[in-house]
Design a protein around this nucleic acid. Structure first.
Lengths: 257, 257
DNA sequence: AAGCGTCTGTGCGATAGCCCACATAACGCC
DNA sequence: GGCGTTATGTGGGCTATCGCACAGACGCTT
């Protein structure tokens, strides 16, 4: 027997759902592994599944002039892949590539949409998640334009740390360079500095977070914003779950549909 | 009496609605002027209204380190302001500032949400719009990181041109610099080049588009992406409208030239 | 006609990150 | 142990943009 319910609550979005809605999802979903560098969705191609990561993390990459240029988002067990489905779209211009191996609950797009239509809590949850993503994308745009590589690197280390379940994960300079949209040697230099200050350890792609507080000081304020937004989705979810049917703010008790 | 229906179909999102839904919105809305530099929404403050611009354009500005850093989106009669409301949020970290004076249909957030709950076509329409915005934000992030000022400037000129109803609008180098997140003199140099090639005319903030095709060649491919996304929302809307058999007034969905 | 504020053109040193290239070092496999 | 592959450290020249500063040009107001 698959420990479906137990394992799927490893995803924050799912964990916040009432049991009935969660079970409807897990019923239609399958537990799959996410292999390093696996591509879950290509730009322009039809989105076939919604994914709820349980472990590991997936980068969303924007293309420019025909090649991957910049990672605009990092999705782990706090989020989902296939967000455009929630908005009624079946394609995306972003590439989803696994950057930290792990696993996920995967649900066919059609099944997902059918379940979603009958799962008001899930829908509200995902709306909040999307709103957070909008904010975060704007933040990323500004961050990538204005902050130096070292601060941005620290930022990504922290985001990866939040999503890896532990202090160690695998991310080579080369990969990081592609995420940050800078040269590999630029990452080497910046990582060297962080290593020199004993904030991280680094040997052939094996990252160890040594001093998280120090890393937060080295990172730009964007990390704080990002974390707060993630937290906001979670808090809203808990509040809703507690109320579960009660109206906690001025919004009508689940509109139409 | 205010010519509400006639004027509000100046907004593409509203124009695509069946008459009943549109009237529900216009009933609760008021026609207001958008003054140059007026701030419609401050980061962190509660979103009080949804706005559907009829003329002019509004920039969404991301903050970094406490001051406006980069415009991540330009909203005109093809879109709306207050998008987070659709996702159940009542704040945003972006500042909305009018960059081209005009007018808009403004609706109180509570009224808007109530109407929205009973307007399925509007809701689908806005979802698509949000999906487009997600794509476009990712694009902006990459563009701002990788493309040179001249190409980005051309890009913004084109976007402003699409949203201004005419070949002339007002945008000083200083303002553009704040939108692009670069120095004012950087804009002056880039604008000088575009002027030298007779793609635009420029005198003290008064911009004239002289050679749109040439400008498109000077711009980065990001402009094309952006335009296609805007068009996709419109096309989807028209297709839906046809399907619903709800095309009563032959208001031509203004085709982007 | 004079004056002043705004807008634009230009210059110069500083710098972060680019491109290209090469050297070293760790690991994995035979 | 030897060898190829992968990962990281380092260097030098180049360019776009920054930061700062100033002068010229335009246009509204008095």
């Amino acid at each position: 027997m698959i420990p479906a319910t137990a394992s799927t609550s490893g995803n924050d979005l799912l964990a916040a759902l009432p049991a009935r809605e969660r079970e409807n999802l897990t019923q239609h979903g399958e537990h799959v592994a996410l292999a390093q560098d696996e591509v879950l969705c290509q730009p322009g191609e039809r989105i076939r599944h919604a994914w709820f990561p349980l472990e590991g993390f997936v980068a969303l990459l924007a293309e420019v002039d025909g090649h991957d240029a910049l990672a605009v988002s990092l999705v782990g067990s706090e989020g989902m892949l296939g967000a455009p489905l929630v908005l009624g779209m079946h394609t995306s211009s972003l590439r989803a590539r696994v950057q930290g191996a792990g696993s996920a609950l995967r649900i066919k797009a059609t099944d997902f949409l059918r379940v979603l239509a009958a799962a008001p809590i899930l829908e509200r949850q995902l709306r909040r998640y999307l709103a957070g993503r909008l904010e975060q994308l704007a933040q990323t745009a500004a961050c990538a334009s204005f902050h130096v590589v070292e601060a941005r690197l620290a930022c990504w280390m922290l985001m990866a740390h939040d999503r890896a379940h532990g202090d160690r994960f695998y991310l080579t300079h080369e990969r990081l360079a592609r995420l940050l949209g800078v040269r590999r040697s630029g990452v080497s230099t910046a990582a060297g500095v962080l290593q020199g200050r004993e904030l991280i350890g680094y040997t052939r792609g094996r990252v160890v977070i040594l001093d998280r507080a120090g890393l937060e000081r080295a990172a730009c304020a964007c990390y704080g914003q990002e974390r707060d937004e993630v937290a906001a989705v979670g808090v809203a979810a808990v509040a809703r779950n507690d109320a579960d049917g009660a109206v906690e703010d001025a919004s009508p008790p689940r509109v139409a549909a």
